[in-house]
């Protein structure tokens, strides 16, 4: 299965992947409208970790044996047939067990959703043509989407 891989040596830390992710998961898919005018401002499913000269993007690895799915008490996280780890907000009870279980820190609290506790996680831009939005937004090919047969 094609997955996202991050190349620390080329990450410039600009954070365009975060913006692209938030836009892609918004209703309007418009950079300005989605930020200012939508009911819920999207939380990026990818975050850029920065320290000094080093930076890299970080998001879900879609693990073969996902700790988050095992930790999920309500069945909101599941692995689909293709191997993607997906999230069903309707089933989520907001216990944040998955956040604690994820060894990569790739699951984020959805702090913009005030009505109840939820999480956000990468869905590899499930239905998007042309693959994940972050890959296209990266100015330096620091995120690649490829099959490495792991």
């Amino acid at each position: 299965m094609k997955k996202l891989y991050f190349r620390e040596e080329w990450c410039v830390g600009c954070g365009r992947c975060e913006v692209a992710c938030a836009i892609e998961h918004s209703e309007s898919k418009h950079p300005v409208i989605s930020y200012f005018f939508e009911k819920v401002r999207q939380t990026p499913r990818i975050i850029v970790e920065r320290k000094g000269n080093i930076s890299f993007a970080n998001t879900c690895r879609h693990c073969e044996e996902p700790d988050c799915v095992n930790a999920c008490i309500s069945g909101a996280l599941y692995k689909d047939l293709s191997g993607k780890i997906l999230y069903d907000p309707a089933k989520c009870v907001g216990c944040y067990s998955c956040i604690m279980a994820c060894p990569y820190g790739a699951i984020m609290k959805d702090l913009n959703r005030k009505e109840r506790k939820q999480i956000v996680k990468c869905d590899l831009c499930n239905k998007r043509e042309g693959g994940p939005a972050c890959v296209e937004a990266c100015p330096n090919r620091a995120i690649v989407f490829e099959e490495r047969g792991e």
């Binding site: 410039v12 830390g13 600009c14 954070g15 365009r16 975060e18 913006v19 950079p31 300005v32 930020y35 200012f36 920065r50």
Partner: peptide, 13 residues
């Protein structure tokens, strides 16, 4: 300012 979404890319770059 109506288009700036405060992502901070310009500051960082």
């Amino acid at each position: 300012d109506e288009r700036c979404i405060r992502c901070g890319a310009c500051v960082q770059q």
